[in-house]
C-alpha cells in the first residue's frame, strides 16, 4: 500500500515552493487534514488561514490570482463544491489562476460519514468552462499532477483521497494532462479484450486487482487510469474501445456527471458503439470502513470482476 494522494500533495508543495515564487496556500481550518500544515509551518508568510469560511477563501484566492499569485486553496472536496457559485464567478468567469484542492473524496474517507464525503464535485467542476479537473490514481501521479497544476495558467480542481492507495504506476511514469493511460494489461498482450476498465483516484487499485484476478480465468481485461477528468481524452477512449468488447467505469463519485458520465458522453458522441457499465455511487454516503463501503456500494474488485464478465461465456 502506498501513500494517500493528499500526503503526496502536501509533500509536493514543500518540495516545489522554490520553483514557484508566486505560490501561496490558503486554508479553511483543515490544514492538518488537507496536508498543508507542513507548508504552513515552513513558509508562514506564504500561508493564509481563512477559518471556516470557504467562500471568502476561494474569492480571496481569485483576487490574489488576479494580482499574479498562484493560490492553492484547500478544503474537503464537499466543502469546496458547496461554494460552487463563488467558484463559478470569482474563479472561472474571471479566468483566475486558482488551484482548488479537494481532499477526502468520496466514500473512501470511511467512518466520518455522508456529510463529509465529496460525491458530486466532479459533476459540478466538469460543468465549469476552463476548469481542468484532475484526479490522480496514486502518490507518484499526484506529485506530478501538483507540479503540472502549478505551472499551468488557469483554474484547476485537484481531487485527492484521504485513504492510502496502491501504487499503480511504474517508477518511470510521466504525467500527461488530458491523457488516459493504461496502467495494466495482461502479458502477453491480448489482441482482444473482454473489457477495458476506466478508473480514477481511489478505484484504480481495485480495478487492477480485478483484472489480475480475471487473467488466469482466461479473460483479458485492461485497466486505464483517467488522471484527467476534464478535458476528457475522447480520442484515447476511442483507441481503447476499439479492441474491447465493453467499457467499465468505476469511480468513487455519484453516477451522474463524473467519470462514467464523461465516458458515456464521449462514447456516444464518437459513436463507439460499445456498452458502458458504470460502477459508481447511487445514494448518499454513510459511515463504515472504506473497504466495507466500496463493497456495499459496488466499487470493490469483486464488483469490477462481475461488471467485466457478466453475461459473457468463459473464453
Amino acid at each position: 500500500m502506498g501513500k494517500a494522494t493528499r500526503e503526496a500533495f502536501g509533500e509536493a508543495l514543500v518540495e516545489l515552493v522554490d520553483r514557484f515564487p508566486g505560490l501561496v496556500v490558503l486554508d479553511s481550518d483543515l490544514s492538518k487534514s488537507t496536508m498543508t500544515a507542513d507548508f504552513a509551518k515552513k513558509h508562514p508568510q506564504r500561508h493564509f488561514e481563512f477559518g471556516i469560511a470557504e467562500s471568502n477563501m476561494i474569492a480571496a484566492a481569485a483576487g490574489m490570482a488576479l494580482m499574479g499569485k498562484v493560490p492553492v486553496c484547500t478544503s474537503f472536496a464537499c466543502f469546496l463544491i458547496g461554494r460552487l457559485e463563488t467558484i463559478r464567478v470569482a474563479v472561472t468567469l474571471n479566468r483566475a489562476n486558482v488551484k482548488l484542492v479537494g481532499t477526502h473524496a468520496g466514500l473512501g474517507i470511511g467512518d466520518d460519514g455522508a456529510s463529509q464525503m465529496g460525491l458530486e464535485d466532479l459533476a459540478a467542476m466538469r460543468a465549469l468552462p476552463g476548469m481542468t479537473v484532475l484526479q490522480p490514481g496514486d502518490a507518484l501521479e499526484a506529485k506530478q499532477a501538483v507540479e503540472w497544476m502549478l505551472q499551468h495558467d488557469g483554474p484547476v480542481y485537484l481531487r485527492l483521497t484521504r485513504q492510502k492507495l496502491d501504487d499503480v504506476h511504474k517508477p518511470d511514469y510521466k504525467f500527461a494532462c488530458g491523457k488516459l493511460d493504461a496502467v495494466w494489461e495482461p502479458e502477453p498482450k491480448a489482441k482482444h479484450f473482454q473489457a477495458t476498465v476506466i478508473a480514477s483516484g481511489g478505484t484504480v487499485g481495485g480495478a487492477v486487482a480485478a483484472a489480475k484476478d480475471l487473467q488466469p480465468k482466461g479473460f483479458a481485461v485492461r485497466v486505464v487510469n483517467a488522471g484527467t477528468i476534464a478535458p476528457f481524452d475522447a480520442d484515447g477512449l476511442a483507441d481503447f474501445a476499439r479492441d474491447s468488447q465493453r467499457l467499465v467505469t468505476v469511480e468513487d463519485h455519484n453516477v451522474a456527471g463524473g467519470l462514467g458520465g464523461a465516458v458515456c458522453e464521449a462514447a456516444a458522441a464518437l459513436g463507439l458503439g460499445k456498452p458502458v457499465v458504470r460502477l459508481a455511487v447511487r445514494e448518499t454516503g454513510e459511515s463504515g470502513l472504506p473497504a466495507e463501503l466500496y463493497e456495499k456500494h459496488g466499487l470493490s474488485a469483486p464488483h469490477i470482476v462481475d461488471a467485466c464478465i457478466k453475461n459473457l461465456e468463459q473464453p
Partner: peptide, 29 residues
C-alpha cells in the same frame, strides 16, 4: 477579460470584498 480596466467580474453579490481582500493581501506580499 472583455473590457480592459475592469478588475473583476462581479454581479453575483457578496463576492467583491473577498476578491478585493485577496488583491490587498497579494499587494502587501
Amino acid at each position: 477579460h472583455r473590457l480592459p480596466g475592469v478588475e473583476a467580474a462581479t454581479g453575483s453579490l457578496g463576492q467583491g470584498l473577498s476578491i478585493g481582500l485577496g488583491m490587498a493581501l497579494a499587494a502587501r506580499l
